[in-house]
C-alpha cells in the first residue's frame, strides 16, 4: 500500500505523469517497440503489427478475465484447460448440431466451469489457487476423454474463415480482444460490479461490512473468466482448424505473466484493463521481436523471465517508494 502524505494536485502534466507512473508498462512497451524497430527492419511494418496484435489477442482475451479475478485477490489456473475443452466441443459437436449451436455450447461449457470454480472458491473457503489447480488437471483430463487423445479436425473449412475479417491489418480476433478489454475497463470504472471488484480485493472486511455480497460477486467474476477462456478457445479452433487436446497448455502461466507484467498485484484491489492491455502487448512484442531476430527459444525464455522480474522491480520502486512493503 502506498502512503503518500500530500494530496496530489491535479494538472494536465501531473495527470499524465500519474497515469504513466501507475501504467509504467506502457513506457516499457514503447521502449521495446523502439529497440526492435531499430534492431529489425521487418518489425515496424503494417503486416507485422497486425501479426503481433492477432498473436497477442489470444493471451489477451484470457488476461481480461484473469484481471477481473486477480483484482478480486483471486487467481484462475484453469483457463488453459477450459480453453481446450471449449475448442474441442466447438469442433467436435458441429458435425452433430451445426456450427453455431456447437460454438454456443463451447461458450456455455466455459461459463459453467467458471461458475463451478467461483462457487467452490466462495463456498468452500479454499484458496482459488488450489481450487483452480484442481480444475487445471481435472478439466484437461476431461478434454483427453472427450477427444480420445486425438486432435479433432474440422470437416467444414468455412469454419476457419469466420475470423478472417480484417479492418485494415487488424484481425477480428484482435478486435474482439480490444473491444472486450475496453468493455471491461468500462465495467471496472463505471459500474457497481466494477467498484465491488476493487472493494472486495482491497479490503474484504470493509466490503463485507458495506453490505457487498462477496460470494456472489466472486462467482460472477470467475464465470466471466471461464467464459472468456471459452471465447479464446473457440477463436483458436477457428484459426487452427483443429482442436488439440494439449491446446492452451501453460497458457494460464503466460496469461498471469502478462497481467502481472501490466502491474496488477496478486494480492488484489489494484489494476485496470489499461495495465493488462499494456502487459499483453509487451509480451506479444517481445515474443515477436525476438523471433524476428532469430533468437533461439531458450534465450527467448530467459529474456522474458528477466523482463518480468525487471518490470516488477520497477513497479515496486515507482509505486511503493521503496517502503519495504
Amino acid at each position: 500500500m502506498s502512503h503518500v502524505t500530500d494530496v496530489p494536485t491535479t494538472g494536465p502534466m501531473n495527470t499524465v505523469l500519474t497515469w504513466l507512473l501507475r501504467n509504467h508498462i506502457w513506457v516499457f512497451l514503447a521502449l521495446t517497440v523502439t529497440v526492435f524497430s531499430l534492431a529489425s527492419p521487418y518489425f515496424l511494418t503494417v503486416n507485422n503489427i497486425g501479426n503481433i496484435l492477432t498473436q497477442g489477442a489470444f493471451i489477451g482475451i484470457l488476461a481480461i478475465g484473469m484481471t477481473m479475478v486477480m483484482i478480486d485477490g483471486e487467481i484462475d489456473l484453469s483457463v488453459g484447460a477450459i480453453l481446450a475443452l471449449a475448442s474441442a466441443l466447438a469442433i467436435g459437436l458441429q458435425d452433430h448440431m451445426g456450427v453455431w449451436p456447437a460454438i454456443c455450447l463451447g461458450l456455455l461449457s466455459g461459463a459453467a466451469l467458471g461458475f463451478v470454480n467461483g462457487t467452490l472458491v466462495a463456498l468452500s473457503g479454499m484458496h482459488s489457487f488450489v481450487v483452480t489447480l484442481g480444475g487445471l488437471i481435472g478439466i484437461r483430463g476431461l478434454v483427453f476423454v472427450y477427444t480420445g487423445e486425438n486432435a479433432l479436425m474440422v470437416q467444414d473449412f468455412s469454419y476457419t474463415e469466420i475470423p478472417e475479417i480484417y479492418i485494415g491489418p487488424i484481425s477480428l480476433t484482435a478486435i474482439i480482444f480490444f473491444a472486450t478489454a475496453l468493455f471491461f475497463q468500462w465495467v471496472l470504472s463505471s459500474t457497481r460490479h466494477g467498484r465491488e471488484t476493487y472493494a472486495v480485493g482491497d479490503n474484504i472486511e470493509a466490503a463485507h461490512d458495506a453490505g457487498i455480497n462477496v460470494k456472489r460477486h466472486k462467482i460472477i467474476n470467475f464465470t466471466i473468466c471461464g467464459t472468456l477462456a471459452a471465447v479464446c478457445g473457440i477463436l483458436l479452433s477457428m484459426r487452427l482448424g483443429t482442436a488439440e487436446p494439449n491446446a492452451g497448455k501453460v497458457w494460464e502461466l503466460w496469461t498471469i505473466i502478462a497481467v502481472v507484467l501490466g502491474g496488477i498485484r496478486l494480492q488484489g484491489g489494484f489494476g485496470s484493463m489499461w495495465m493488462t492491455i499494456g502487459g499483453v502487448l509487451t509480451l506479444a512484442v517481445l515474443r515477436n521481436g525476438l523471433r524476428l531476430l532469430n533468437t533461439p527459444n531458450y534465450v527467448e525464455l530467459m529474456v522474458m523471465g528477466a523482463v518480468l522480474v525487471l518490470a516488477l522491480v520497477l513497479d515496486k520502486l515507482l509505486n511503493h517508494g521503496g517502503d519495504g512493503q
Binding site: 500500500m1 467498484r195 476493487y198 472493494a199 482491497d202 479490503n203 472486511e205 470493509a206 466490503a207 461490512d209 458495506a210 484491489g269 489494484f270
Partner: peptide
C-alpha cells in the same frame, strides 16, 4: 478504518 485504499473518497 473500514475503507478501500484504492477507491476514491467519493466511492
Amino acid at each position: 478504518l473500514s475503507l478501500s485504499p484504492e477507491l476514491s473518497v467519493a466511492e
